[in-house]
Design a protein around this nucleic acid. Structure first.
Length: 478
RNA sequence: UCCCUAGUAGCUCAGUUGGUUAGAGCGGCGGACUGUUAAUCCGUAGGUCGUAGGUUCAAGUCCUACCUGGGGAGCCA
C-alpha cells in the first residue's frame, strides 16, 4: 500500500478508505479504552489524529508511542466524532519505526522558548513554528526562481571562492589550505600566498554582484541566489555570518526600472506566500500575537496577514535621500532632540531615522534614492549633480534595509576616476572594467537579503530562526 | 566591538533587607478516567543555584573576572 501525505488526506481524503501514513508523534492522549495520537509528517502544519483502540494493541507498543517517536500507521479514514478535526484514522496496524525516549527527547508538547529551540536546532523542525517557517522559506525560494524564470532572467551561479577583496562589503573569511601554525613566508616575513591553493589570497564571497554584471552585459538579465559570507562581528537579530542573497542584475535598466523591478518582485513573492502558505501564515500570525500579548498596544506589530496584504496592495513611497533629510529635520523627534544620531545632508541614515520614515512618517515601505556618493560604493552611477549616486535602498518596517541596489556606473573613465579616489586597485579588477571597455551599456541591479525577507513574511523577530543552522560569531554548532 | 540584561530541576520561572532542610507549573514515571484536543484527577522521582575567585560567623542572594544566552547600537543584506 502506498504511503499518503497527511496534507493530502486532510485536504481530500475519502472516508471509509484504507490509508497508510508515516510520521512523528506530537502528542498522545488517552483513557482506558482508547488512545489518541497526533501524527505529523511535515507535509502540513496540521496533524492527523490516529485513534487506537487499546484492546487491539499490545501495551508494550502503546507505551512506546511517545512524543517524538516515528510511526507507520495503517487503518481506515473515518469522520471524527470529536471536535477539532474533520477526519481521523482508525488504526488497524501500528508499526513503531523509531522510539523516542521521553526522558531524553527535548521537544515536549508544550511551549518552548525560541532560545531553547535554537540550542536544539537539529530537532526544532519538529515544532509547529519551525515547520511553518521552513515550509514558507521553501515556498519563497521557489517563488523567486519562478518569478525570474517567467521574466526571462537567467539563474547565474557566481563563485563562492573569490580572489577579489575589493568588493567593499565588509570583512571576509579567508580560504586557505596553508598550514595555519607554520605558513610559508616571503623574504619580507609575510605569509607567502603564492604557495597557497589558488596561488593568491582567496576569500569566501561577500557578493556575487561584480560577476553578475559580467553575466548581465551579455545574457541581458540574470540573477544569483546563493550563500554569502561576512566575517563581521555582528551580534544582532538581523545579521548572520552566512546568509543567502538574491542579486538580479539587468542590462539596459536605469534606476527607475530597477525600483520598478524590486517592488514588483517583492510583491509577487508576498502574493505567492498568501496564495500558497495560508495555513502556515495563519499559525505564524497567531504565534506572533501570542508572543506580543504582554507588550503595550503601540509596540505590537500589525497582524501578519494584514501586514502582507497591506504591502501587496500599496505603492512603495519613493523619495530621494535629500528629501528624506528634509523630512527628518522637520520631524517631531528631531525637534525634540529625540534622535541619538545627527541628521545632516551627507551623513548616513541610522536605523532610528529609517524606522521613523518607514514606521511613523509614511507607514509604508519606502525606497530611498540618490545618496551622497561619499557614503556609497564605488561602482554606483554618478549623477549629474556631481554629489549623489544612483543608489536605491528599500526599507521595510521592523527589518530596515531589505534591499540595497543601484544603477551601475557604465563609463570607464568615471569609474576609474572614482576607484582612484577611493583607493580601489583597478589593476586587480581589470575584468570588471572590461565590460565598460567593450560594448558598455547602462545597467542596474540589487541585492535582497533572503533571511531578512523571510523574517518579514513569517514575522520571526530573530534572523537565527529563519535559517536552518545559523552561523553567527561563536556559533557554528550542527 | 560597545551598552544593558539574564544564567536556580528536562523546560518555563519564583526564591523577601545575606540566615536553618531550595519551591511551583509544565514535562517524566506509577495509577485512575466512556472520545481526547498542549486532556483531566491522584501520587512520585528529579538540583554541584553558569564557571573560578573573594567578602562574611553565614552566599542562590553581595563584589571581581571569565563563559554563554537575550535585547539594543554600530557594520550591513
Amino acid at each position: 500500500m502506498e504511503r499518503q501525505k497527511i496534507k493530502n488526506i486532510l485536504l481530500n481524503g475519502e472516508t471509509s478508505k484504507q490509508v497508510l501514513v508515516k510520521g512523528w508523534v506530537r502528542t498522545k492522549r488517552g483513557s482506558k479504552n482508547v488512545n489518541f495520537i497526533a501524527l505529523n509528517d511535515g507535509s502540513t502544519i496540521h496533524n492527523l489524529q490516529i485513534v487506537a483502540d487499546v484492546n487491539n494493541f499490545d501495551d508494550e507498543i502503546l507505551r512506546e508511542i511517545n512524543t517524538g517517536a516515528s510511526l507507520s500507521v495503517m487503518g481506515k479514514l473515518e469522520e471524527s466524532t470529536g471536535s477539532g478535526q474533520k477526519v481521523e484514522l482508525i488504526a488497524e496496524t501500528i508499526e513503531l519505526l523509531g522510539k523516542a525516549d521521553p526522558e531524553k527527547f527535548p521537544i515536549q508538547p508544550k511551549k518552548h522558548s525560541l532560545e531553547f529551540l535554537r540550542e536544539n536546532a537539529h530537532l526544532r523542525f519538529r515544532t509547529n513554528t519551525f515547520g511553518a517557517v521552513f515550509r514558507v522559506r521553501h515556498a519563497m525560494a521557489f517563488a523567486i526562481h519562478k518569478y525570474f524564470n517567467e521574466k526571462g532572467f537567467y539563474y547565474l551561479h557566481t563563485p563562492i571562492v573569490t580572489a577579489s577583496d575589493a568588493e567593499g562589503a565588509g570583512q571576509m573569511f579567508r580560504v586557505s589550505t596553508l598550514d595555519a601554525k607554520n605558513p610559508p613566508l616571503t623574504d619580507k616575513g609575510s605569509v607567502d600566498y603564492s604557495q597557497d591553493f589558488f596561488g593568491r589570497p582567496t576569500n569566501l564571497t561577500v557578493s556575487g554582484q561584480l560577476e553578475g554584471e559580467l553575466g548581465a552585459t551579455a545574457l541581458g538579465e540574470i540573477y544569483t541566489f546563493g550563500p554569502t559570507f561576512r566575517a563581521e562581528n555582528s551580534n544582532t537579530t538581523r545579521h548572520l555570518a552566512e546568509f543567502w542573497m538574491i542579486e538580479p542584475e539587468m542590462a539596459f535598466y536605469d534606476l527607475k526600472d530597477n525600483m520598478d523591478l524590486a517592488e514588483e518582485f517583492l510583491k509577487s513573492l508576498i502574493k505567492y506566500a498568501l496564495e500558497n502558505c495560508m495555513d502556515d501564515l495563519q499559525f505564524l500570525g497567531n504565534r506572533l500575537k501570542e508572543e506580543e500579548k504582554n507588550k503595550p498596544q503601540e509596540q505590537r506589530s500589525m497582524d501578519l496577514i494584514e501586514k502582507l496584504e497591506f504591502v501587496l496592495n500599496n505603492d512603495f513611497v519613493r523619495i530621494t535621500y535629500t528629501e528624506a533629510i528634509e523630512i527628518l529635520k522637520n520631524s517631531k523627534p528631531y525637534k525634540k532632540k529625540k534622535f541619538q544620531f545627527p541628521v545632516d545632508w551627507g551623513v548616513d541614515l541610522q536605523s532610528e531615522h529609517e524606522r521613523y520614515l518607514v514606521e511613523k512618517h509614511f507607514k509604508c515601505p519606502v525606497i530611498l534614492t540618490d545618496y551622497p556618493k561619499e557614503i556609497k560604493a564605488f561602482y554606483m552611477k554618478q549623477n549629474a549633480d556631481g554629489k549623489t549616486v544612483g543608489a536605491m535602498d528599500v526599507l521595510f518596517p521592523q527589518i530596515g534595509e531589505i534591499i540595497g541596489g543601484s544603477q551601475r556606473e557604465e563609463s570607464l573613465e568615471k569609474l576609474e576616476k572614482r576607484m582612484k579616489e577611493m583607493n580601489i586597485p583597478a589593476e586587480e579588477m581589470w575584468w570588471y572594467l572590461d565590460i565598460r571597455r567593450f560594448g558598455s551599456v547602462i545597467h542596474s541591479g540589487f541585492g535582497l537579503g533572503f533571511e531578512r525577507f523571510i523574517q518579514f513574511v513569517t514575522g520571526m523577530g530573530n534572523i537565527r530562526d529563519v535559517i536552518a543552522f545559523p552561523r553567527t560569531p561563536k556559533n557554528a554548532e550542527f
